[in-house]
Deep mutational scan, measured.
Amino acid sequence: METPSQRRATRSGAQASSTPLSPTRITRLQEKEDLQELNDRLAVYIDRVRSLETENAGLRLRITESEEVVSREVSGIKAAYEAELGDARKTLDSVAKERARLQLELSKVREEFKELKARNTKKEGDLIAAQARLKDLEALLNSKEAALSTALSEKRTLEGELHDLRGQVAKLEAALGEAKKQLQDEMLRRVDAENRLQTMKEELDFQKNIYSEELRETKRRHETRLVEIDNGKQREFESRLADALQELRAQHEDQVEQYKKELEKTYSAKLDNARQSAERNSNLVGAAHEELQQSRIRIDSLSAQLSQLQKQLAAKEAKLRDLEDSLARERDTSRRLLAEKEREMAEMRARMQQQLDEYQELLDIKLALDMEIHAYRKLLEGEEERLRLSPSPTSQRSRGRASSHSSQTQGGGSVTKKRKLESTESRSSFSQHARTSGRVAVEEVDEEGKFVRLRNKSNEDQSMGNWQIKRQNGDDPLLTYRFPPKFTLKAGQVVTIWAAGAGATHSPPTDL
């Protein structure tokens, strides 16, 4: 069977082979063929449309019947899901209200924590001031004790010197008594010597008188005998007598002179000795008097100093007792304040721990409710997609609110971060928990396990030699990294520990 286009092609070929045509004729024939082709295509399209309309009418009838069946089946399910969705919305509203209440309680707890922290800071300042005052008082007490020990040692030294001076005074008084006794003995010996000298002088005078009498008696006897002796021998006898008398007189005078000289010499020697002894004793007595006077003056001065030191010692002891009493009071006050502060800190920690436990429990309940609501929403969306139902505006708002919801909680030295990733086909969620104590904190952990970043959050360098970082993902083997023995993380510095297959460059001390 030939198509209209094939017939047109045969006809035009025959005409062209029979007679030659002009260009205008050819153009018109071409346009006519195009119109015929378009008409044929339109006829085919109309036939196809008619057949499709016939099929569409049958399909519409089948769809109508199916919609009636589906509407009867879905009406009950939709009512049940609407009821469950209403319950879920009520639960979500109650959870939102509970969350708002918990946020209010958390803000209240934070305000109480700030207030307690301020009070604690003030108490710590008072405690530091009390400890500083206690240290000052202890230093003052130590200085006073040192001064007291010095004063006591000086007192003992002065008492020793006073005892020595008293012994010296006793010795000097004994020496003075001995000197006085020697002086009295010398004076007695001097008086005795003077008496003996006077006696010797009297004896000498008496001997002179006796010698004169004997001489006169001898002259008288000789004169008497001379009268009786011969005149011839008188001159010879007289001359001999005169010579004998002269010789006797000379001898007697020599003896008297020698005895006189010896007596005067002895007397002068004894007198000089007595005078020297008297002068020496008088000098000793003067020196003893002077030394005794000086000793008395020094004793008086030392007694005055001793009394002054005793007064100072009594004042120091009184002040020391006052300082000890004040120190005891300060210690009791400090202990009482410290006990009160520790009790308040313990109560505050217990209260904060209780509130944190309650908040953690409520947060766990909220997370469980969020997971249940998310599961209900997934089931509802799956059924709506299976039944090709359009979601209600309320469910769209709930989905938008659930997809944009995120929370971040800080308290008790722990930080909890939650992130949620969404897509049109599926939804997944993960959470990161970080707890830090000390100078070094974990700043970031790569989700794909490529690196771990640490930061020194203090103002001092931290030695991290032979420290270890351990990481384990589920049931995978435990991964451990040990820092070099001499590694030190500077204040405020960040160090990144890269995985072996991350392709990073080893560049200490920032990249390991």
Results as ranks from 00 to 15, higher is better:
L183C: 13
A193H: 00
T199R: 08
A244N: 05
L271H: 02
E253M: 07
V227N: 14
L245W: 00
L204S: 08
E203V: 02
E194Q: 11
R240I: 13
E223F: 03
E253N: 13
E236C: 08
R216W: 07
L271K: 00
V191N: 06
Y267C: 00
F206C: 04
R220W: 01
V227K: 06
E202Y: 08
V256T: 06
I210L: 05
M200F: 12
S268C: 14
T266P: 01
T224Q: 12
R190S: 12
D254P: 03
R216G: 08
D205L: 05
E262C: 14
N231P: 10
M200I: 14
S268P: 00
A244P: 10
D254L: 14
L215K: 01
Q207G: 03
E186N: 12
D192V: 02
R235C: 11
D272G: 06
F237D: 07
T199I: 02
Q255M: 11
E253Y: 03
E203I: 01
K260N: 04
E214Q: 05
D272A: 13
S239H: 13
R235W: 12
V256R: 09
E257F: 14
D185Y: 15
R190C: 14
E213T: 08
S268K: 06
T218M: 00
N231E: 10
F237Q: 04
A250I: 13
L215D: 10
K265I: 06
E202D: 01
Q246R: 12
Q184W: 13
R196F: 00
K181G: 15
D272M: 06
D185R: 09
Q182W: 00
L271N: 05
R225D: 12
A179N: 14
E264H: 06
Y259G: 03
A179S: 09
V227S: 12
K208H: 05
R189F: 04
V191Y: 04
E213I: 07
I229V: 11
R240V: 12
K270D: 00
K180Y: 03
E257V: 05
K208C: 10
A242N: 05
L263G: 00
A179M: 14
K260R: 02
M187K: 15
D243K: 12
D205Q: 08
T266Q: 07
L183D: 03
D185W: 12
I229L: 14
Q234I: 13
T224H: 05
I210S: 03
E238S: 03
E238Q: 04
E214G: 14
E238K: 10
K201S: 04
L183K: 12
Q246F: 09
E214C: 02
Y211H: 01
Y267E: 00
L263N: 02
D192E: 02
Y211S: 15
A269V: 08
R220F: 13
R221G: 03
L241A: 01
K265P: 01
K233P: 09
I229Y: 11
L188Q: 03
T266V: 04
M187Y: 06
Y211D: 10
D254E: 15
L248M: 08
N231V: 09
F206G: 01
A242F: 11
L245R: 10
E213H: 06
Q207L: 07
G232Q: 06
R235Q: 11
K260D: 03
D205Y: 00
L215Q: 11
N209H: 04
E186P: 00
R221V: 12
E178S: 00
Q182C: 15
E202P: 03
V256D: 04
L271C: 05
Q182R: 08
K219M: 14
E194M: 06
A193M: 03
F206W: 03
D254V: 06
R225Q: 09
A250N: 09
R220D: 10
E213N: 10
R225L: 03
E194I: 15
I210Y: 07
R189S: 05
A244K: 08
K180P: 00
Q255H: 02
Y259L: 07
S268H: 14
A193Q: 02
D230M: 06
E223I: 09
K181D: 10
K233W: 05
Q198G: 05
D272H: 11
D254I: 14
N231W: 06
I210R: 10
E194K: 04
S268M: 08
R216T: 06
Y259P: 04
L263E: 03
R189E: 07
K233N: 14
V227F: 13
R216Y: 15
R220L: 08
D192F: 08
S239N: 14
K233R: 04
E217Y: 10
E257C: 15
Q198E: 08
A193P: 01
L183F: 01
Q184M: 09
I229G: 13
F237P: 05
N209C: 11
D230I: 09
K270E: 04
Q234Y: 10
L215N: 00
L215A: 00
